[in-house]
């Protein structure tokens, strides 16, 4: 395995980790505020469809992104209504949202486009293209020299390879996702809003006593979760792939949930966990079975590894994962 191959796998790691990271941060906001959310998958899926659909119809990827965020917000509002206003079971609500998205996306896709539950393939202006950072070798150089990009990159030096292949050339949503990590950290741990949001997930009665609205804070957290899931879904359909296909999230919402537990509900660790799980996906995508001498790791092990790791972490064998204390509990003002 040569150096460039490793860089390519890492590059694909970043692309695959981005939706996980956005969804994971979404779950982080929600669960830190005491609202469990196993509906990340459904919100991403709804956003993926509506972003691709609107981008396909309008030709504007930004309108698509907006539509994706709105769709995800609607489902987030439903989750808020069920789990905050009506104090229902948050887990059941999440399950319902996942099914609602899985069914509605195909239903509407079939009604609008009649292509068997998918959107038409998006053309260039309907997608988020790669951003070429300064001094990086990108498609424009390839066009100028009239040679394939891969050839140009394989001929340059190591630093330029890392810069051009790994750091440059991603869509704007990838950079946004990575910037969201310090931003999330700053909001949660350096602002008054963040302090209250965390408090409402640990001890809502104390927040209520201080005269701050528990319901308002929780709705805010669920809304932020909706926006981030919306971006994650839009990234899937308009940047990672070109259009929506049925069930395209393929369990990513649950991997993000796993990453969230793996990270023990902390932003920077969420980044590491998502990069790890993205790496596993990238390796599984590139190599089917991995041969280590006479020993073969089947591809299914790579598929299952995020879930196995999460169970191990949850079991507390490698450092215990303790969720926010008031998580999953509806808040009732008077007893």
């Amino acid at each position: 395995m040569d150096f460039l191959t490793i860089i390519q796998v890492l590059d694909s790691t970043i692309r695959l980790a981005t939706p996980l990271l956005l969804a994971c941060l979404a779950g982080l906001f929600s669960e830190r505020a005491g609202i469990f959310d196993i509906g990340l998958e459904g919100k991403m899926l709804a956003a993926a469809f509506f972003s691709a659909a609107v981008a396909a119809i309008s030709g504007s990827v930004w309108l698509g992104l907006l539509a994706g965020i709105v769709a995800s917000l609607v489902l987030a509002a439903l989750h808020g209504l069920a789990s905050i206003t009506f104090r229902g079971n948050q887990l059941i609500s999440g399950v319902a949202i996942n099914f609602l998205a899985a069914g509605m996306t195909v239903l509407i896709a079939q009604d609008w486009f009649k292509q068997g539950g998918r959107t038409p393939s998006l053309l260039t202006q309907g997608r988020f293209g790669g951003i070429e950072l300064p001094f990086a070798i990108g498609p424009s150089d390839a066009a100028a020299y009239g040679r394939p990009l891969s050839e140009l990159i394989s001929e340059t030096n190591v630093v330029q390879q890392v810069y051009s292949e790994l750091i440059s050339g991603h869509s704007i949503l990838v950079y946004a996702a990575f910037l969201a990590v310090p931003l999330t950290w700053w909001i949660l741990f350096r602002t008054r809003f963040g302090l209250r949001l965390r408090a409402v997930g640990e001890n809502p009665a104390a927040v209520d006593t201080a005269g701050v609205s528990v319901v308002g804070l929780r709705y805010a957290a669920v809304a932020i979760c909706g926006v981030l899931c919306g971006i994650a879904g839009a990234y899937l359909a308009t940047a990672l792939q070109a259009g929506f296909v049925k069930d395209m999230t393929a369990g990513r919402g649950f991997i993000a949930l796993a990453a969230l537990i793996f990270a023990k509900w902390r932003p920077w660790h969420a980044l590491y966990a998502c990069l790890l799980f993205g790496f596993l996906q990238a390796v599984a995508l590139r190599y089917q079975n991995i041969h280590l001498g006479s020993f073969v790791i089947p591809v299914q092990v790579m598929d299952a590894l995020p879930y196995i790791l999460t169970v191990v972490i949850l079991a507390g064998f490698v450092g215990k994962a303790i969720p926010p204390r008031a998580g999953g509990e509806p808040y009732v003002k008077e007893r």
Binding site: G88, L100, G103, M104
Partner: peptide, 23 residues
């Protein structure tokens, strides 16, 4: 022209109303 996924939607609505939105 109604796809099978209609059932998934109905299933979701049943879970939603009998489970999460019980109150």
């Amino acid at each position: 022209t109604i796809p099978r996924e209609l059932i998934v939607v109905i299933q979701a609505l049943v879970i939603l109303f009998t489970g999460a939105l019980d109150n």
